[in-house]
């Protein structure tokens, strides 16, 4: 199993400077992506999904961010120890990233077609304009020829999002990280995009790490899912196991929310209380305050990960007794 790991994140810790203080927003992330698999990252808004995945590309330390510890192994190298030059040759070519904010990640002053062409060329990949147009059409940009010569401000949110997707898909990377790639497009395009993801996964063996709030997307596309809360991984396992038999109380609550909308309850189920503020993270389970099944021990230290059958992992002391 070990040698099938394409990406291995170990004990990753990331903090940001706020005035005089540093605040840890990613507290300890362990996460593996196996070759050729599709992993979904779900969880609370602000739990560190984007920050930890941009760390893979070395994009955290640009601002006030700092990686305080851990390891990110890609194939056989630790990305955190690589010089910028070496990282650059990995970015885009071996690991492609589709950013959460599709408009901000495009250069506003350049026509989008040129941008795609240049981005791909930087990675030493030769691609004909025809292929770019074909990919654009495949993901539902019907007027590909026209859009090719337009600027980002002339395009809608969903069109920009799909340009990011096209750029990533064309590179045929080993690993594609997609941060909320379908949040701005309609249901029929969503299906198209997901089918394309599935296609490159099957055809080229591209492993995919997809960050999404959409449980339908996870169910449709992913082999495995990881649930995050408060800068920690709370639960992970095969998609069916986790969505059908959630073990962590947070996952249980999340699925109640999903179900509430699915069945159309007039007042939607939502969790009581607020997520922990990174300013005041305590040495306890981050879900403690909101947990309906909490016990006395739950606020005595961060609960350890418990390994279960079928690659299941749960960060909850209740899981041991269950």
């Amino acid at each position: 199993m070990e040698d099938r790991k394409l990406l291995q994140i170990k004990d990753l810790k990331i903090s940001f400077a706020y005035g005089q203080n540093r605040i840890q927003v990613v507290r300890e992330i362990d996460l593996d992506v196996y070759q050729g698999e599709i992993v979904g990252i779900l969880g609370e808004s602000g739990s560190g999904k984007t920050v930890s995945s941009t760390a893979i590309l070395g994009l955290v330390s640009d601002g006030d961010g700092r990686i305080d510890g851990g390891e990110i192994r890609f194939k056989d190298q630790d990305l955190l120890k690589l010089p910028e030059r070496a990282l650059e040759s990995i970015r885009g070519k071996e690991i492609a990233y589709i950013f959460q904010d599709p408009v901000a990640s495009l250069n506003p002053y350049r026509k989008v077609g040129k941008q795609i062409q240049e981005a791909v060329k930087v990675h030493g990949i030769k691609v004909e304009k025809e292929e770019i147009l074909k990919t654009m059409e495949e993901i539902g940009l019907a007027d590909a020829k026209l859009i090719y010569d337009m600027y980002p401000f002339q395009l809608s949110g969903g069109q920009c999002q799909r340009l990011n997707i096209a750029m990533a898909v064309i590179c045929k990377p080993k690993l594609m990280i997609a941060d909320e790639p379908t949040s701005a497009i309609d249901a029929s395009l969503r299906r198209k995009v997901l089918n394309i993801f599935r296609g490159i996964n099957e055809k080229y063996g591209t492993a995919i790490m997809i960050i999404t709030h959409d449980f339908d997307v996870a169910r449709f596309l992913c082999h495995r899912v990881v649930i995050m809360y408060g800068g920690l991984v709370m639960e992970e396992g095969e998609v069916r196991d986790v969505l059908e038999k959630p073990m962590h109380p947070y996952t249980v609550e999340l699925l109640k929310c999903v179900n509430s909308l699915n069945v159309g309850e007039s007042s939607l189920y939502s969790l009581e209380g607020v997520p922990p503020n990174p300013y005041e993270l305590k040495n306890e389970c981050p879900f403690f305050e909101r947990c309906k099944q909490r016990m006395d021990q739950c606020n005595q230290g961060i609960p350890p990960m418990v390994n279960g059958e079928n690659n299941r992992r749960v960060r909850c002391i209740q899981a041991v007794s269950n």
Binding site: L42, G43, E44, S45, Q100, G157, E180, S183, A184, H213, F215, E253, L254, C257, V258, S260, L261, S267, L268, Y269, S270, L271
Partner: peptide, 20 residues
Amino acid sequence: DEPVSALDVSVQGQILNLLI
């Protein structure tokens, strides 16, 4: 304009309840 598409399901429910 897409007010809840960037939110996780629990916050999404909270915001939709709030809007209502």
